[in-house]
């Protein structure tokens, strides 16, 4: 496989983590403009763990996910009374605060004769754990996709479970959900923490693949794109976000056809698509129809 293809496929995988994280919140009825914060926190935490503290890669990635979960859970708990736009803007404010705080944060140590660690706006270079441990770009790409597939599998199983149904119910009608006995506030905090963990895991992978991160990578553009991918792909299934990312990065960014006009084309397409399908390509109705297509013989048997 060419380096370009490996890089592209790895990128699609990593961005899908943020999109999945935004999707999970969308399903629970919350719009977040701030999932990039947990992606960034996960990237910094995982990078620090493996580089400055010499933890193994797996533990570092887990630490990144945990940091994302703590950040998401904290914001979720603070904003549990907010809904709709208020929640969306609070998450945006938190994400911008995180980015600006990372711009001010220095935590460096001499390792192998040079200073390593987060250095404010100059970023955090030298996160080489994955490659000193013998990962190649190709094997790392496979690692990304195995973890992504695992995350999606967990989400799909979760959505079929009782709590998954409660989550979707709370998203569609919080008052009804409360009447049916769902603790909506608690559900929201837990969802925010889980979404933070997913983004944090993606961030850890991102830091180790690129070996360099800086605060401005985690700006609001990333978060709003993630949200857009979630809704373009469709709110009916966890495959939706992946489809959203594939459409934008896989087709538009990588093809030379739209060079320099990508955003004009993408923007126009998305606006038209959403007039036609306000809940995305794979919305709930489509997913139900597809499922019926596959289960029809069983029903008649």
């Amino acid at each position: 496989m060419s380096d370009f293809a490996v890089g592209l496929i790895s990128n699609i995988g990593m961005i899908t983590f943020v999109a999945l994280s935004a999707y999970l919140l969308l399903v629970s009825g919350s719009i977040s403009f701030g999932q990039q914060a947990y992606f960034g926190l996960g990237a910094y935490a995982a990078g620090i763990a493996t580089t400055l503290w010499d933890w193994p890669l797996a533990l570092g990635l887990a630490f990144g996910a945990l940091t994302g979960a703590l950040g998401g859970g904290l914001v979720g708990a603070l904003t549990r009374r907010l809904h709709g736009l208020y929640f969306a803007i609070a998450t945006l404010a938190f994400a911008e605060m995180t980015r600006l705080a990372l711009d001010l944060w220095r935590y460096q140590r001499p390792i192998g004769g040079e200073l390593v660690g987060p250095d404010g706006p100059n970023g955090f270079a030298g996160i080489r754990r994955a490659f000193t441990d013998g990962w190649e770009p190709l094997s790392f790409m496979i690692l990304i996709w195995v973890l992504l597939a695992g995350t999606m599998l967990v989400l799909i199983l979760f959505e079929r479970s009782r709590s998954g149904a409660a989550l979707r119910g709370a998203g569609e009608d919080p008052v009804l959900a409360r009447a049916l006995g769902t603790d909506v506030a608690r559900l929201r905090v837990n969802t925010a923490a889980a979404a933070g963990a997913i983004a944090g895991l993606g961030g850890g992978l991102y830091a180790h693949l690129n070996t360099y991160i800086e605060p401005r990578l985690f700006d609001v553009m990333l978060g709003v794109h993630a949200l857009a991918y979630g809704i373009i792909g469709g709110l009916g299934t966890a495959f939706g976000p992946l489809i959203g990312v594939l459409i934008d990065i896989g087709i538009l960014e990588s093809s030379r056809l739209f060079q320099g006009w990508r955003m004009v084309v993408f923007g126009g397409l998305v606006a038209l698509l959403l007039i036609w399908r306000p809940r995305g390509l794979l919305d709930e109705a489509t997913v139900r129809r597809l499922r019926r297509l596959f289960t029809t013989p069983a029903r008649h048997a």
């Binding site: 809704i231 126009g268 397409l269 959403l274 809940r279």
Partner: peptide, 14 residues
Amino acid sequence: GVAAMVSSFAVWMQ
């Protein structure tokens, strides 16, 4: 409302 917002984001980029 979410669709309108995402749509306006796409047009922002445009």
